[in-house]
Write a protein that binds this DNA or RNA. Structure first.
Length: 147
DNA sequence: GCCAACGTTGGC
DNA sequence: GCCAACGTTGGC
């Protein structure tokens, strides 16, 4: 799950312990969140910054539920098609698990054959949420020397 | 339903 | 700041 650290970083999550992952306005990314289960593990990815890459680990801490910013007319995430009964955008809460001692950078991820098929590297890597396989997950943990 | 124009994301 | 790769919008 990507975030620009200038907006919300792994350190912010560490401080908050838990946060609703609001503001996703892309259907494919939303659908990935809708399929998440309580307790699923996620990578926290820093995008659009000096040190692009995976910064740490989080855990899905809620079932999917409506993103309340879609109902707020003053929010930039307001969605006029949404009603309380028929929300358009969903989210999950994400809890802090750990921050890597060293970011696993995008350029390092690109170096490894085992990670060549990561969804993150496809589609111009624009999607803010993309799935990771168990093997990819463990490989990245080993790159982070966390395993 | 097609597609051009436009807006956004995100690496570099 | 540039630009590729999308996704979205809206006229027809």
């Amino acid at each position: 799950m990507k975030s620009e650290p200038a907006d919300y970083s792994i350190d912010d999550l560490k401080r908050d312990k838990k946060t609703p992952w609001y503001g996703v306005r892309n259907y494919q990314a939303r659908n990935y969140m809708k399929s998440m289960k309580l307790g699923d593990t996620i990578f926290f990815y820093h995008s659009s910054c000096d040190d692009v890459g995976i910064a740490g680990v989080g855990r899905v801490a809620s079932k999917p539920y409506p993103d309340k910013t879609q109902f707020d007319k003053k929010s930039k995430y307001y969605e006029k098609r949404a009603t309380i009964d028929t929300p358009v955008w969903m989210l999950v809460d994400i809890a802090f698990v750990k921050k890597f001692k060293k970011i696993v950078t995008l350029s390092e991820i690109r170096k490894h054959k085992a990670l060549a098929h990561m969804k993150l590297l496809q589609r111009g890597s624009r999607l803010s949420i993309s799935p990771v396989t168990q093997k990819e997950f463990e490989f990245i943990l080993s790159l982070a020397h966390e395993k």
